[in-house]
């Protein structure tokens, strides 16, 4: 067991897979000699060489196209899109090419590739470097979508993503890079599509993802001081979506609150809410409440950004609204 940051867990997880499988290659902007703009890939090029850890030009379409073509022909690429906002300049390769290739070819093509990206707000980078776009990915058939909240999940879920035969979008939350956690020794391989119940309580089910998980836990602490014990579920993966864990918990608590960084319209919480409303309505004892970023681009100033993102007070208030 070693304590490490979420940031260091990224390089640790990539190294685990590259050491195991020579077909794993890694490409992106500034990932090699610079060690990544978030310093999340330090040391990989020194260890695995410039052939397998490749710095690219600022050409997001070329990066993802190369990953796709390589995955079609025997490699297992990991590609980095530095900020998830930049998916907007290469979304064609993601949504039209990578996601659809297997289906359109009647199963002839498999694309075992991972696209890692720095996602989400909290770093005061403004509206073009702070978005949470995991809901964009979730809307495209053919993609798997993962967003870890802890260092050990970074390692385990990244390993699962690299070994998965399908394309996986792996969202690393930028505001979590400096956070620390224990990572077990030895090979760590997790499972995609399995949510984690990170706190147990009978009053309500709070479902969160990535940076919203520690906030949901902080809100749960605050509610506990008033005697309200809630369950907190770290969804960890949007596709596959662990409906069973959510539904089982809602059946026990009777209340559902989702906490998401996505702007309000069609954030992932809307899908979770609609599934529960459609399939578990009679388990509910109160309204489903979604705590989201309002439907605005994220502002840059710290005071404004903090006011826009879901915070502990809004999560507490959301739980109270469901219980009222």
């Amino acid at each position: 067991m070693a304590e490490m940051t979420y940031r260091d867990a990224v390089a640790y997880g990539i190294a685990q897979e590259m050491a195991r499988d020579p077909s794993v290659v890694f490409l992106g902007e500034d990932i090699g000699s610079a060690g990544g703009v978030f310093k999340a890939t330090v040391g990989l090029q020194e260890r695995f060489g410039k052939g397998r850890v490749v710095d690219t030009p600022i050409s997001e379409q070329a990066i993802l196209g190369a990953a796709m073509g390589a995955a079609m022909t025997g490699l297992r690429p990991i590609a980095e899109i530095m900020f998830s906002d930049f998916f907007a300049v290469c979304w064609d390769i993601v949504a039209n090419e990578i996601a659809k290739a297997r289906y359109m070819t009647n199963g002839q093509v498999a694309l075992p590739l991972v696209i890692r990206s720095g996602n989400g707000g909290g770093a005061r980078f403004g509206a073009q470097h702070s978005q949470s776009v995991e809901n964009w990915a979730m809307a495209i058939p053919g993609l798997k979508v993962v967003a870890p909240s802890t260092p050990s999940d970074v390692v385990g879920l990244l390993a699962a993503a690299v070994r998965d035969p399908d394309p996986v979008l792996f969202f690393e939350q930028k505001s979590l890079y400096a956070t620390k956690g224990d990572v077990p020794d030895g090979e760590l391989v997790d499972e995609l599509g399995k949510a984690a119940v990170v706190r147990h309580g009978p009053a309500a089910t709070v479902v969160a993802l990535a940076a919203m998980v520690p906030r949901a836990l902080a809100a749960a602490d605050e509610l506990a001081r008033e005697g309200i014990e809630v369950t907190v579920i770290d969804l960890r993966s949007l596709v596959p979506l662990d409906v069973t864990t959510v539904a089982t918990s809602v059946a026990a608590t009777g209340h559902l609150v989702t906490v998401e960084e996505n702007p309000r319209l069609c954030g992932w919480g809307a899908e979770v809410a609609s599934i529960v409303a459609e399939e578990n309505l009679f388990d509910l004892d109160g309204p489903i409440v979604r705590v989201t970023t309002p439907h605005v681009p994220l502002p840059a100033a710290d005071a404004l950004e903090d006011a826009a993102l879901p915070n502990v007070a809004r999560i507490v208030e959301g739980v109270r609204r469901s219980l009222a």
Binding site: G65, G69, E97
Partner: peptide, 9 residues
Amino acid sequence: TIANGAAWS
């Protein structure tokens, strides 16, 4: 861009 990936491979 995808053809590049095959050639790279």
